[in-house]
Computed example of a mutant assay.
Amino acid sequence: MRQRADWMTGADDTILEFLAETDAAFSKRGLEVNFERENIGLSYSTLKRRLPTLEEHGLVEELETEGAWYLITDKGRAYLAGEFDASA
């Protein structure tokens, strides 16, 4: 069972699950486009707010190569697997 932190929202799990499933790096706009294609109701503004927070807590990493691209970290994968307590 996942150990969510008080600062986390349902959007965070959705973002992390998508990044884990695709095993790829995406820009905020790239995530938005893919979420729209899959009928996942997360807006660009939500991504803009949540990705920096997830990065701050080590669950995603920002790659800066001609813009910001995000990918899930090992800590993010451990959280999804229920092996990391994000509230700690």
Results as ranks from 00 to 15, higher is better:
residue 11 A to Y: 11
residue 19 L to F: 07
residue 68 A to N: 10
residue 17 E to G: 03
residue 23 D to R: 10
residue 41 G to I: 00
residue 47 L to A: 04
residue 30 G to Q: 05
residue 16 L to W: 02
residue 23 D to F: 00
residue 55 E to Y: 01
residue 9 T to Q: 10
residue 76 G to N: 04
residue 73 T to K: 03
residue 52 P to Q: 01
residue 20 A to Q: 09
residue 14 T to W: 00
residue 19 L to H: 05
residue 50 R to I: 12
residue 72 I to G: 01
residue 49 R to H: 09
residue 23 D to W: 02
residue 63 L to W: 09
residue 67 G to W: 08
residue 43 S to K: 09
residue 49 R to W: 06
residue 82 G to F: 05
residue 31 L to W: 05
residue 34 N to D: 10
residue 87 S to E: 11
residue 29 R to I: 14
residue 74 D to P: 05
residue 65 T to L: 13
residue 77 R to Q: 07
residue 49 R to F: 05
residue 12 D to C: 06
residue 84 F to V: 00
residue 23 D to S: 11
residue 62 E to C: 08
residue 25 A to H: 07
residue 35 F to M: 15
residue 26 F to A: 03
residue 78 A to R: 13
residue 19 L to E: 05
residue 13 D to P: 03
residue 34 N to M: 09
residue 25 A to C: 02
residue 21 E to D: 12
residue 50 R to Y: 10
residue 42 L to F: 07
residue 74 D to H: 09
residue 84 F to S: 02
residue 79 Y to Q: 02
residue 9 T to C: 09
residue 82 G to N: 04
residue 2 R to W: 08
residue 68 A to C: 06
residue 12 D to Y: 02
residue 68 A to G: 11
residue 26 F to I: 00
residue 44 Y to D: 03
residue 18 F to Q: 03
residue 64 E to Y: 13
residue 87 S to Q: 12
residue 7 W to K: 01
residue 36 E to D: 15
residue 8 M to N: 03
residue 47 L to G: 04
residue 77 R to E: 12
residue 75 K to P: 00
residue 62 E to D: 06
residue 19 L to Q: 07
residue 60 V to Y: 00
residue 21 E to P: 02
residue 82 G to P: 05
residue 70 Y to V: 10
residue 14 T to R: 10
residue 5 A to G: 15
residue 35 F to A: 04
residue 35 F to I: 02
residue 57 H to T: 04
residue 63 L to D: 10
residue 11 A to T: 10
residue 26 F to D: 02
residue 15 I to V: 08
residue 61 E to R: 10
residue 85 D to R: 13
residue 47 L to I: 03
residue 17 E to N: 10
residue 80 L to R: 02
residue 63 L to A: 07
residue 61 E to H: 10
residue 55 E to F: 02
residue 50 R to A: 10
residue 28 K to R: 13
residue 71 L to N: 06
residue 11 A to H: 15
residue 54 L to G: 05
residue 66 E to M: 15
residue 45 S to C: 01
residue 12 D to P: 00
residue 23 D to E: 14
residue 36 E to K: 15
residue 83 E to V: 06
residue 53 T to R: 15
residue 56 E to M: 11
residue 52 P to E: 01
residue 40 I to P: 06
residue 64 E to H: 14
residue 32 E to D: 13
residue 73 T to M: 00
residue 73 T to W: 03
residue 29 R to K: 13
residue 53 T to I: 15
residue 64 E to R: 15
residue 29 R to T: 15
residue 31 L to F: 07
residue 22 T to N: 13
